[in-house]
């Protein structure tokens, strides 16, 4: 079974803020990590490999530093990591990212199952997985919390929707995005850590993928960020301190003004 897991390197904290006056970014030295949801995708890939045999390839697109995310993925036991990196890939929106990933999956000869985390914690779009499935023209099940093989090429998937959980059956090859209820990711193993240190991580560039500049990165993107700004400040803020009874009375007064009961 060929298993591909897509991961994204993200800043460890989302606690970035813009100065309300200057709009400058207030940021401390932030560490990069594997998007936490992707670790569940990786774990599910490893479990399927243990159950069904096969290989787990971890794929990421990013600057050269994103190699660290792949090396980290190897410490959990992935078989290989592949980095898609080229200056031309910079500025990609979800469409261009998925398009580039799709070219890499094809170059790798396709996959039986592709796993993605439900979304990345920096962008929070949850779009790259479904867009990748669409480019590869394979079925997809989003928000999976449980997988069961019901045949060599059939998966039953329990997935979260707005009303509850649905059970669906999907024919492989397919792409699955996972929620964190699906498993409990393992810890890196010592053996795998040693292997990860020594591993070579192939880098695929624009020409390796057989794409042109107009299809990737900012040029290939259909969306443009035109403005970033801090969230709107709320109206007048009022902070009260004092004895509990006084505070409760102030609160009660406010509730009465609001005509609640």
């Amino acid at each position: 079974m060929k298993i591909i897991v897509c991961v994204k390197q993200v800043p460890e904290t989302q606690d970035v803020r813009l100065d309300p006056v200057t709009h400058n970014l207030l940021r401390e030295g932030v560490k990069s990590i594997i998007n936490p949801f992707d670790l569940y995708a990786l774990e599910e890939g490893l479990r399927i490999r243990e159950q069904q045999g096969g290989t787990v390839t971890v794929l990421t697109m990013g600057p050269p530093q994103a190699e660290a995310a792949l090396r980290e993925a190897l410490t959990y036991g992935a078989d290989q990591g592949i980095l898609l990196s080229d200056r031309a890939f910079a500025g990609a929106d979800t469409w261009a990212t998925a398009f580039t990933l799709a070219a890499a999956v094809r170059k790798l000869g396709g996959a039986d199952v592709i796993f993605c985390g439900k979304q990345a914690i920096d962008g929070d779009t949850a779009q790259v997985g479904p867009e990748l499935a669409a480019f590869l023209d394979i079925p997809q099940v989003a928000w999976a919390r449980k997988l069961t093989f019901v045949g060599p090429e059939r998966l039953q998937v329990e997935r979260l929707l707005d009303h509850g959980y649905d059970l669906v059956e999907v024919q492989l090859p397919a792409l699955i995005t996972v929620v964190k209820e699906i498993n409990e990711p393992r810890l890196p193993s010592f053996k795998a850590k040693l292997k990860a240190k020594a591993a070579t991580i192939p880098v695929y560039s624009l020409s390796d993928l057989g794409l042109t500049e107009n299809q990737v990165g900012l040029k290939g993107s259909f969306t443009r960020v035109v403005r970033v700004f801090p969230p709107p400040a709320r109206g007048q803020r009022e902070i009260l301190q004092g004895a509990p009874e006084e505070l409760a009375a102030a609160l009660w007064g406010r509730l009465q003004q609001m005509h609640l009961r």
Partner: peptide
Amino acid sequence: ATYVGRAFIPRVAAVLDTGLTAD
């Protein structure tokens, strides 16, 4: 931007070759 919308709308945007902004 429900579970349903976020699951299938990206497929539509991909195939129609157009941008999609989430949430």
